[in-house]
Design a protein around this nucleic acid. Structure first.
Lengths: 252, 252
DNA sequence: CGCGCAATTGACTGCCCTCAAAAAGCGTGG
DNA sequence: CCACGCTTTTTGAGGGCAGTCAATTGCGCG
């Protein structure tokens, strides 16, 4: 919290360390600079404003906030959610390191949802105007940006499939399988990980109640597919979970 | 069907009329060329391959098809749907004139869903490779393309809200209100229009059964908010429907 | 007119929600 | 260390919304 320097005291950290440096970031194979050579990566670094820490439960941006930045998650987890006329919320996604936040705001120049940190997190601020200027000079960057937006469209289509078509146990299995695969991509265990979100948040995301989630966990435990203690999860039968998620098997 | 000319016979129509011409298209204020000046629009015209007719129930592209083109709908309606491991379908959207199809394929270079014409329709083929080349020369085109992709992300988030959070009557009201507003944008009546999709397709899209849709129509009719005869719809109480969609009123 | 398909309506079922209470974590302070 | 209060999670009982199944009606078309 005291890492920023005031005007007349010795800086506790160098200013450079607050600036982004894609080349040295462990996520550059996953994040926006994917596939760029060293010089292009440096040009991208030059426009990336600063790293910003977001404490647990803090809000990165709110619906209707004017849009200036995209945010690349360096570490930590976020949730994005929409709020309807009644103040009810629907979580539209959980985001983790290497993923980009804010793309839904490009169209209207205002954010279309809230983004909240699920734990203490850090993001790189990417000024979108300057990023657009770079697109003209780095075709590879533009191409990868399109892939990222397209991927987000596909991700949301999969959630629509989940919400519209699946029964409760299938939804929950699909949720776990999805998390597992994303942790694997990031070099973490795909069978043992911590849930960063509460039961309530899982339920909201999946269109279920907290009680249903709790009952599903108990059912999966009894079935022997899963071990859960608080937010610590161990997947004991990944293939079985995948089959349940695909709808080719049930719990019974 | 016989509009294309063979090599040694007199063309039935000129080749030019098969080529796109954004400037003379009534949708250019809505579609990809939005905001371009005349010269830029001509450059866009030059890369747009041809217009292609798609008959009712015909498939424009299938999941896993290699991606080469985006498609701009000139007239007609489409549905896009995903197919899961069991062959069950989830309709992810209904698209109409001026909207762009195929953006979900950019990421993997393969289409992620099927697109089927709901009626006899026509699309402009937009070769994506060549469109990318144009982006470097027409910044306004690139900027608008990003707005379109972002809009698609927002649209899907709204469907997630609908599928995850709403009760049946709210879903159906939201569906009607959405259609009405899109027809209004296109200069058609927002209160009287034809449903291009069957009850079954509406139900699939909304995560409901065909019987539920039928009951909802009856309920809305009895309430006096709606007049329906086959696929002909007249919205009698738009404000009431909006209130139901927003969740600030119910049918009872 | 008769056929086939789509839509409507009714009766019943079941999945998941709601309500309620108990149990388990977790931080705070004695 | 335990007691305490607060929040989160678990578990149970019961109800309701939407699904399932089945029969009927309506519509387009040869």
């Amino acid at each position: 919290m005291t890492q920023t320097s005031s005007c007349n005291s010795t800086p506790l950290v160098s200013l450079d360390s607050l600036r982004a440096n894609c080349a040295s970031c462990s996520l550059h194979q996953l994040c926006l600079p994917m596939g760029l050579d060293e010089t292009d990566m440096q040009r991208l670094d030059q426009i990336i404003g600063r790293r910003r820490r977001i404490a647990k439960d803090e809000i990165l941006y709110r619906m209707d906030d004017p849009f200036n930045m995209l945010y690349a998650i360096r570490f930590g987890h976020f949730k994005t959610y929409q709020v309807n006329a009644n103040g009810e919320r629907q979580i539209t996604g959980f985001q983790m390191a290497g993923e980009l936040l804010g793309m839904d705001a490009i169209s209207t120049e205002r954010h279309q949802c809230d983004a909240m940190a699920l734990e203490d997190s850090e993001v790189c601020e990417i000024p979108f105007r300057q990023l657009e200027d770079l697109f003209g000079h780095i075709p590879n960057l533009l191409r990868h940006f399109h892939r990222i937006m397209s991927q987000e469209i596909t991700r949301e289509q999969n959630v629509m499939l989940l919400l519209g078509n699946m029964r409760a146990e299938q939804k929950f299995a699909a949720f776990l399988v999805n998390l597992a695969s994303r942790y694997q991509t990031r070099g973490y265990s795909s069978t043992t990980f911590q849930l960063r979100m509460s039961r309530e948040e899982i339920g909201n995301y999946l269109g279920l109640t907290i009680e249903s989630i709790s009952r599903l966990i108990s059912k999966f435990k009894k079935g022997g597919w899963l071990r859960v203690s608080n937010r610590e999860v161990e997947i004991l039968a990944p293939e079985r979970l995948k089959a349940i998620a695909a709808g080719t098997a049930t719990c019974s």
